[in-house]
């Protein structure tokens, strides 16, 4: 099992007014997701490939955290994307619909696997070893999904914001250390971190809304 190599530190130094124009970038991304969803619904196989490439790590990590078994997570990931393809006509294209929809399918697969496990006498011991109440498990799943959606949202931030947010929140670097690392003024770094947090919040809210 390997984790996504992240981030690739930019070799060039950033400077200037990098904070402007971000909302346009975000709108372009929204349009991109919407048209990707539309192509998927229309039955375009290359759209499925792109959807897989973009969200398979999200789905796989969710399944891995929820099922705590590499083999089951692999199987569930495969089933999620095949099921997504076969029920693609149920997807209503909107900016956040795709990840919300994929997580929804993954949630069902996870319940299926848990159900199968509880039916399987051989694994009774494994179930007994995880005596969490159903609601607790569900709440934990929700939180994992939220964390992963946020993580995915970081991936999709335009650089240098992506790198800055990653260094701030995942590497725990101070704003001054980040400024040194990426070669940007302290004020610019702070602004990126703030705007990054706002964007992550918007992404999470969007996916939660679509998940209903």
């Amino acid at each position: 099992m390997s984790t996504v190599a992240f981030p690739t530190l930019p070799s060039r130094r950033y400077g200037g007014a990098v904070v402007t124009g971000m909302s346009e970038v975000e709108e372009e991304q929204d349009d991109g997701v919407r048209s990707l969803a539309a192509r998927l619904v229309a039955g375009d196989e290359t759209a499925l490939e792109q959807v897989y490439d973009r969200w398979s790590a999200l789905v796989h990590t969710y399944a891995l955290r929820a099922l705590r078994d590499a083999g089951d997570a692999e199987e569930a990931t495969q089933q999620v994307f095949v099921a997504a393809w076969r029920s693609r006509h149920t997807l209503v294209p909107s900016p956040h619909a795709l990840p919300a929809w994929l997580i929804g399918i993954a949630r069902h697969k996870v319940s299926d696997v848990r159900l199968a496990r509880s039916r399987d006498a051989d694994r009774a011991a494994a179930v007994a070893a995880q005596p969490e109440a159903h609601a607790v498990v569900e709440a934990a799943d929700e939180e994992v999904a939220d964390r992963l959606v946020v993580r995915q949202a970081v991936e999709e931030l335009p650089d240098p914001r992506r790198t800055i947010v990653f260094l701030a929140f995942w590497e725990g670097l101070s704003h001054a250390e980040i400024a040194d690392t990426v070669g940007l003024p302290l004020g610019t770094v702070k602004s990126h971190v703030r705007r990054g947090l706002v964007t992550l919040h918007q992404q999470l809210e969007g996916v939660r809304r679509e998940s209903r």
Binding site: E74, V144, W170
Partner: peptide, 11 residues
């Protein structure tokens, strides 16, 4: 929510 999870690519 940030800072704990990393994404694990599917095999």
């Amino acid at each position: 929510l940030v800072g704990e999870e990393s994404l694990v690519p599917a095999p």
